[in-house]
Design a protein around this nucleic acid. Sequence first.
RNA 1: GGUCCCAUCGUCUAGUGGCCUAGGACACAGCCCUUUCAAGGCUGCGGCACGGGUUCGAAUCCCGUUGGGACCGCCA
Length: 438
Amino acid sequence: MTETVRVRFAPSPTGALHIGGAHTALFNWLWARRMGGSFILRIEDSDRQRSTEAFEKTILSGMRWLGLDWDEGPDCGGDYGPYRQSERLDIYHRYAEELVGRGLAYREGEAIIQHVPQDRTLLFEDIVYGSIEIKSETIKDTVLIKSDGTPTYNFAVVVDDHTMAINYVIRGEDHIINTPKQILVYDALGWEIPHFAHLPMILGEDKKKLSKRQGATSVYDYRDLGYIPEGIFNFLALLGWSAGEDKEIFDRDEATALFDLSKVIKRKAVFDMKKLGFVNQEHLKRLDPARRLELISPFWKDLGLGKGNFDEAYLLRALDLLEGRGQTLKEMAEYSDFFLSFGPVKARYDGKDLSDETRAVLAPFFEALLELETWNHDAMADLARHWAGEQGMKLKDLAMPLRWALTGRKVSPGIFEVAAHLGREEVRHRLRHYGLAG
RNA sequence: GGUCCCAUCGUCUAGUGGCCUAGGACACAGCCCUUUCAAGGCUGCGGCACGGGUUCGAAUCCCGUUGGGACCGCCA
């Protein structure tokens, strides 16, 4: 008979959900889902000065955005609540008093401090790091309850984890050094010690602990940059763990099926934006078209582009023509702007490179193009090839000017596909603007 | 400084004594495809930090050195 896995993610609401926290939450979630256990969300707001309700809200919504749903938490309740430390003060006091009563802790002013034995070797088995031992001499007596009546982190986590029946403590490697202190509390209270699994830290490109000063650090920063939850989830899962069999691109369900805590490695991982971009792009390519359209809309809006009178089929097809171009929604929105409006095209291309001679050479071709009986890619490509052949020109001599006039860029999806999709009248309008058609 | 942890291509990783003249992915370079850029395909560049052991045999085990990181709060 095996115990039901209960894990928790316990952020303190003193900032948005950052990448490191998301990584920890993700691995907890993966383990809970893999083992058919419960994922608990607990808010560690015992630092009343820095904790805010707003931050708590953004952390919760950040997790929802990433698809990390929890079974028990401050918003949905559960059998082990309350789920905010600020609402559990009496519990901490009860246990702290108990230790004082048994002579294992003492008062100093309003504070309660635990006696730390000086002759013990504290040993624990970590699922990721193996056995770790620290001599108790190196630990000073530790404060359990602060003078203001709130519990310290090391005391509160233990009381919470035990009273919430957490049996797997999965958290960042920076907590390894706290673990012995916590074990002392477990021992003093006579509680069973949970399984510990510390996760390698995520480093910035400078190989230092990821911090605010290194640009985007909250998951919402990445969302606003155009990364999608599937991409971030996949990329984060790759840090410290691998699915095996050279499988690097996967969705939530695949990751859940393959995840194993004992396969987590110890080495710290650098957060590499380039790879994030690649992984995100792979998920962008796999996205359901309708959802992709829904997700990209805000980014068009940011560019000042409305969906205007375009129907859904037109927009869907426009994104389809991008064929994997763009690593983020933001890039996709930029790359497709000319489908929504001629405005940005005019803004970046003035046609001044077109001499009268060039216009004279190109105009007849564009006239013929606009007269085409069937308005589609093949007909345009055929015409262009024949025309180029007869005039001793290269296909690109015709394609590039058209590309500039239609998109305002030197790169774009296949230009005849673009022209076909834009429609004959819109193409005529743009060519006329640049004096390339009558 | 003290305590603890880590160490495979630039980066993410596979690898748990022989299958490793170390595999994959990102990035980079080149080629193919081609109306451009992507995408896709192919090729290339590039690594077991160093030194000692143990062993018939070490990327894999042990020791040391070096390098990196984390923590040393009545913050979490």
